[in-house]
Design a protein around this nucleic acid. Structure first.
Lengths: 231, 231
DNA sequence: GGCGGGGAAACATCCGAGGTCTGCGTGAAG
DNA sequence: CTTCACGCAGACCTCGGATGTTTCCCCGCC
């Protein structure tokens, strides 16, 4: 095994074992390198890798620190990974969302406070009559994020957030701006909101299911026709 | 932004844009470095980082290649991330499993073939009467993995697989080997299997829910008493 | 046709030098 | 006494080159 991978494992081990706690500062490059028995160059590769997944945080002129290791932080890194997936797997991701979002929505219907709900309403009201694509995507994303947040489970929230990555979503909306899809989406968002505001978990779950399934169905049709047209 | 991060983005861009397809080979370090306008050292840091999340695959003496980018490969990297989470977030992860596993089990009940089901049965039979902790964990993990695989959705499968990381699971089992928990778990596995074999999605879903919720409840109690005892 | 040797290519590792940024103590000005 | 600018030390950033290791593949031999 390359020394760099070994270094990654060792640093991981130091964190998992508790030797390095969240927020702790690592020894300086030179010291840690000699302690792990490798060169600074190789150590830097290991640190950079752990940096990409948000486990370490290097600050130039200061030092290298262990991040808070909060679920949100670590799962956010997954967004980066999801970006790499090609169109033919989008449906699989959407199917997972179809499982997670209704559950999160039901939980949110039970847990969201009145002020949370008021903010959700403001979000819906804040959308123009004929919004730009960017505004639409941002609003849609924020709406679902607020609900996921309302589930009270940070892992669930981050996961949903990552799965509906900006790239995927933007790509979908780009073709969805036509027709009456915008109006229908708005209606469904409103229905989801109403169910949450009424604290009706099962109703909220159903509307969320309908909503995601609608997107899924539309996407399936679009991809299908694109396939037959393209090849 | 550091040149290394820039390089990561550029390489990512080359892949997402299609300039580099899965399986393609990257230019050699020296060439790519000069093309991206940085030194080999810095480029190597970028490559190493993308390597950790399984986007690139470097083979000494050969070259650097783009991986298949399959969901399984990329989401497997998440296992690495999940390992970093501390005990106090395990419940949140388990709550997500409680959402995903029943759904996957229901899907599996509809989709698994007779030969798949036969293999699942063999797995259950293969467990000794008084298994070691290692055997128990391996068997349990494999049982749930097969079911997740049977859902037909690779993303869902990998996600479930990652969430029930070996570390977490092992830690749970370590305290669960006593008492009648082993027998109860075996019973529930059997019930899940029966429901799948009978192709009864809703029954399978319910048993899976019961199963995961049981673990969740037990863990909540254990963590609770540990907290009150420890502090 | 099969097999083994040898060379070329590419990555792995290390080292050392200069550059840049940050945090913080110091000291003067208000 | 408080505030702010200055400057130093520490730590990371980037670079270029040199050497070791592994793999691939062509070529000659059996």
């Amino acid at each position: 095994m390359p020394v760099t991978d070994e270094a990654i494992d060792k640093i991981k081990g130091m964190i998992v074992s508790g030797e390095l706690a969240p927020g702790d500062r690592l020894p300086k490059e030179a010291d840690l390198a000699s302690r792990l028995g490798l060169s600074r160059s190789s150590l830097r590769e290991a640190v950079k890798a752990l940096c990409l997944i948000r486990v370490l945080d290097v600050r130039q002129g200061d030092g290298t620190y262990v991040t808070s290791l909060e679920p949100k932080l670590l799962l956010d890194a997954m967004t980066f990974v999801v970006d790499f997936h090609r169109d033919d797997t989008v449906l699989d991701f959407l199917a997972v969302r179809r499982i997670l979002e209704p559950a999160a929505t039901a939980m949110a219907a039970q847990l969201m406070t009145e002020s949370d709900i008021a903010e959700l309403a403001a979000l819906l009201e804040g959308l123009e009559e004929s919004p730009t694509v960017e505004a639409l995507v941002a609003n849609d994303l924020e709406f679902h994020r607020r609900i996921a947040l309302g589930s009270g489970n940070p892992v669930l929230c981050s996961l949903i957030d990552s799965l509906s990555g900006p790239t995927t979503r933007a790509r979908i909306w780009r073709g969805l701006t036509q027709e009456d899809a915008v109006a229908k989406t708005r209606e469904q968002h409103r229905a989801i909101y109403d169910a949450i505001a009424a604290h009706e978990p099962e109703l909220a779950r159903s509307w969320a299911t309908v909503h995601v399934a609608g997107v899924e169905q539309w996407l399936r049709k679009t991809l299908g026709s694109a396939d037959s047209a393209g090849e």
